[in-house]
Design a protein around this nucleic acid. Sequence first.
DNA 1: AAAAGTATGTTGAATTTTCAACAAAATGGA
DNA 2: TCCATTTTGTTGAAAATTCAACATACTTTT
Lengths: 220, 220
Amino acid sequence: MEKYFAILKKCPLFFGIDETHLAKMLPCLGAQIMPFDKKYTILKEGNPARYIGIILSGSAQVIRLDYYGNRSILSEVGPSELFSEAFACAEIDAVPISVIANEPGEAMLIDCGHILHTCANNCGFHQQLIFNLMKDLAAKTLAFHQKMEILSCRTTRDKLLTYLDLQAKQAGSPRFTIPFDRQELADYLEVDRSGLSTEIGKLRKEGILKSRKDQFELLQ
Amino acid sequence: MEKYFAILKKCPLFFGIDETHLAKMLPCLGAQIMPFDKKYTILKEGNPARYIGIILSGSAQVIRLDYYGNRSILSEVGPSELFSEAFACAEIDAVPISVIANEPGEAMLIDCGHILHTCANNCGFHQQLIFNLMKDLAAKTLAFHQKMEILSCRTTRDKLLTYLDLQAKQAGSPRFTIPFDRQELADYLEVDRSGLSTEIGKLRKEGILKSRKDQFELLQ
DNA sequence: AAAAGTATGTTGAATTTTCAACAAAATGGA
DNA sequence: TCCATTTTGTTGAAAATTCAACATACTTTT
């Protein structure tokens, strides 16, 4: 387990907990390691929502398929980030989303019951874990608000520009790389791929942005 | 303060805390009462995010105005429900939303710093409050997922039907009342009002629903 | 290096949304 | 009750999206 400590220390779930205590906690929490290949379904819609997931290496997408099988990309998770924590914390029966690997990697799964209800050993760090979960969920709520700001736009153009502005702001620079190809970006913005391509072309012609594949630059 | 206990006991923030302790905690938390009239701005976008709000009576809408001044209705809050808790818990500078009263009522404001950082008296119930906040934020995350399910639909018809299905499921009956007039429903679904009216008319003609004002019935 | 497969850009037609304007219905006061 | 105001429904035109089909560019494999 030690080889994961560098990543786990950056994980919001373990904020403020040092390696010594982490080493004691992990077995207490019943942490398991799950290796995965590209395109592997790490978590499938309908599965029990018992586990909190932590990406140790690689990355994955949180998606949902609608009635007709259309994919929506809800978010992207990378190393040290949590997934499915809200469903586990809410103690619902089944997760309403799937998590699909972008590339090979590993995830850690923790039975959330061991965090919410004090474990037999009573490690004394449950309070910190619960506080950390609360902080994480608050931060995720902010991210949801950003996503809603995008989805509330009526046109592909406005959705795209709102997304790119947010990315630039996050990158702290007008030049940035996005974690999506065109189809994925369309599924994230909830728009048609071909219309998205057209719109990117227009913005380029109008001198509003430069782009090459997943690299973008917003001009002035 | 005692007259509010009946409502506060139902508030997710105070779950598992009895009246005796509640009475001790409220002053410790620096709780203030804010009366409001219809259309009053209980919380304004850009304000400090210090406070967690609890609706004691009446109701309000959480809204956001976009660049052009178009209103988005994010959610509806009623008695014993929390608002702005995610922003307070995330300890960001300013709230990105506004909260507007639907009707006269009262709200309680609690300085979130008094919950997150142990207070001088160290009431001993902070752990429970933090646990409750975590639970509340997890539940709100589920609500956000539902909203995203609606917004990810491409047509007004699908957005409307997805919304109505969710409402029927929540009401546990095909007959239910929604908390919106037409313009508000349009601003919640992020669609054009006149198009929404037209679509409701079509669904009625097709025998898919019955409706009168804010009362709906989904047929089979 | 060639071939196969994938991703992206482009186009036109059909559908849908938005927008503006107005009519009808409902509401709230005087 | 009547008047003024607000809300809801309806319509047609303009704009935008979706959809399908295909050309081009790029990757990966053999």
